[in-house]
């Protein structure tokens, strides 16, 4: 990874996203550095996906400042942005039954490649991503023959193959079994340990506490807390954010009752 020796820092200040008359995201400020895994938590409709899209430049109504290495992110063109920040969206449709290798190769799109037309460096990145996600044995298989867990790994590999210094993943473990949830988070953790920074949206608070360096808590479009799990994961925060009564013991979170 060539860019990872350099420290990357993404700074978001006072990001607002409007839709119709309401604010989806209100004055959100956060930063993300390489080598750091931050998890974004919050109930449905809190504005987590909107926040990611706003930072990525995919929400046309976003205002505020997003800077990467001090440079406004909006100054980069779509390809330059994609080389610095890879994005795993919440919905991950695959239109055609493409081979696994071709889907992962699309991670190199921003580097000017197409499946079947990869340079040596791109091929290396694709093979490394396939290996990291344990997909080498099924690289030539068609994606429509894979299980949900295998597909989730393919999408991760696609995002890793870009070798971008930063990664956004929106609910990467949704609808996966417990073992695969753990496995995908471990893959992202390993990716971070190679020097990347990751911002991951999760609904599984225990999983988040287990893997995250930082938890960013969101409710009704606002970031209400941001800090390590040991400091921010509390029973009162669970009540405030999710309106549930929870017993917390280290990383373990047991939800006992919904609050009225």
């Amino acid at each position: 990874m060539t860019d990872s020796e350099q420290k990357f820092e993404l700074t978001v200040e006072k990001l607002c996203i409007r839709a119709g008359g309401s604010l989806l995201v209100e004055n959100a400020s956060l930063d993300l550095r390489s080598g750091e895994l931050a998890v974004l938590l919050g109930p449905n409709g809190a504005g987590k996906t909107s926040l990611l899209r706003g930072i990525l430049g995919l929400a046309p109504t976003a205002t505020g400042s997003v800077r990467l290495q001090g440079r406004a992110f909006g100054e980069f063109n779509p390809q330059q942005r994609a080389r610095r920040l890879s994005y795993l969206p919440q919905r991950r449709p695959l239109a055609w039954p493409s081979p696994v290798r071709d889907v992962v190769s699309l991670g190199r799109y921003a580097w000017g490649c197409a499946p079947g037309r990869l340079g040596a460096e791109d091929l290396g990145a694709v093979n490394a991503a396939l290996a990291a996600c344990d997909l080498l044995a099924m690289a030539e298989r068609s994606t429509d023959t894979l299980s949900g867990g295998e597909l989730a790994r393919v999408h991760c590999a696609r995002a890793f193959a870009t070798e971008a210094p930063l990664l956004f993943a929106d609910e990467p473990v949704a609808s996966l079994d417990p073992r695969h949830r753990f496995r995908i988070m471990q893959l992202i953790r390993d990716h971070v340990s190679t020097g990347a920074g990751a911002l991951v949206v999760l609904h599984d608070v225990s999983l988040a506490a287990r893997f995250a360096d930082r938890l960013i808590w969101m409710k009704e479009g606002r970031i209400t807390a941001d800090g390590p799990p040991t400091q921010t994961l509390t029973e009162s925060r669970m009540a405030e954010i999710y309106q549930v009564q929870a017993d917390i013991n280290g990383n373990h979170v047991e939800i006992t009752n919904p609050l009225p």
Binding site: L58, R91, L94, A95, L106
Partner: peptide, 12 residues
């Protein structure tokens, strides 16, 4: 192939 959202994410 990846859908509009992911396609935009990879730089399209």
């Amino acid at each position: 192939t990846l859908g509009d959202e992911a396609a935009a994410g990879i730089g399209l």
